[in-house]
């Protein structure tokens, strides 16, 4: 399978496919279905210093070719993730990318400092873009100066490379990408969900208890592809692309636009074996495209 291997800062990937944060929990549920060692990496659910109970229900609402969610970063807190979830994941031969969230710079720094010492955590993903939590990540991800300063603070304490997950809910995503690169980010992951709303047909009120939710699924793919395409031209650091990936062709599209690896999110809820299936199908797809190694397609849109 060496024709699928990808090397990125901190990450030695067997293949470029990984489940996206928030769509795979801490792996336990999907481990009932297939061997997680097959995956390129796993982006675990966002971890905050203290445990979070998340938002009231309904937390999800289906939309055309997509869904809205406002889970609210529910997670058991840093202590439990360190003592239970990460050690449990050690049984698999797979690098973990730990998604780090918080409401203050100090929260991010505390989570990053400790979680980056876990033996299987090979990289961090800074969640500066989660649109759901009031007074939360949103401000970090939409202001280039604040975003850069946060990256600098986290880089100063992290033992592993730091990737920054960009929010699409900005006027100019290139500006944010360049700011986090200057701040010392080792890579970029993109995109997070697009803020949206669905109304109840009878009452005219939002369906999701939180009011707004993050839009994901095939509906967002064109937006994600465009953003990866633009950011690839503007930064030197690698990009892990995501947004509406459901099949092998989507992976090729993201890599063509400039992603070095690809995360699969919402599709895991629908087609529970989607990551495993894409990994199986990639070699034939490469043959069809006439390339010997998957690296050759990275950024081919620009050549």
């Amino acid at each position: 399978m060496s024709k699928l291997s990808i090397q990125l800062p901190g990450l030695d990937l067997k293949n470029p496919i990984m489940p996206a944060s928030g769509c795979f929990g801490f792996g336990r549920e999907y481990a009932q279905l297939y061997d997680l060692s097959k995956l390129g990496a796993i982006m675990i659910k966002a971890t905050t210093v203290e445990k979070r109970l998340g938002n009231p229900t309904p937390r999800v609402a289906e939309t055309p070719a997509g869904m809205l969610n406002a889970i609210g970063l529910q997670n058991p807190g840093l202590d439990k993730v360190m003592s239970e979830e990460l050690p449990w994941l050690e049984r698999f031969d797979v690098p973990i990318i730990a998604n780090v969230a918080g409401t203050l710079t100090e929260d991010y720094v505390e989570v990053a400092r400790r979680i980056s010492t876990a033996p299987n955590v090979k990289a961090l993903e800074l969640n500066i873009s989660c649109p759901n939590v009031k007074h939360g990540g949103i401000t970090f991800g939409t202001d280039p100066v604040i975003a850069r300063e946060l990256v600098e603070a986290v880089k100063a304490v992290s033992k592993v490379p730091v990737y920054v997950k960009l929010s699409p809910n900005v006027t100019n995503i290139v500006e944010i990408a360049q700011a986090v690169e200057i701040g010392g980010a080792d890579g970029i992951t993109m995109i997070n969900t697009l803020v949206g709303m669905r109304l109840d047909e009878r009452t005219g009120k939002p369906v999701i208890a939180n009011g707004t939710g993050g839009l994901s699924g095939p509906a967002v793919k064109p937006v994600a592809i465009r953003m990866v395409y633009e950011v690839y031209k503007a930064v030197e650091i690698p990009i892990i692309g995501m947004g509406g990936v459901t099949n092998t062709q989507d992976v090729i599209d993201f890599m063509s636009a400039g992603a070095s690896a690809v995360a699969v999110g919402t599709a895991n809820f629908v087609d529970h074996f989607v990551c495993s299936n894409i990994i199986d199908e990639l070699p034939a797809k490469l043959k069809e495209l006439g390339v010997t190694h998957i690296k050759e397609i990275i950024g081919r849109s620009h050549r």
Partner: peptide, 16 residues
């Protein structure tokens, strides 16, 4: 009954 996403406990949509 609750609105569900994944159905296997990973997405945290159907919490009570």
């Amino acid at each position: 009954e609750e609105r569900m996403g994944c159905g296997i406990g990973a997405c945290f949509a159907c919490i009570c």
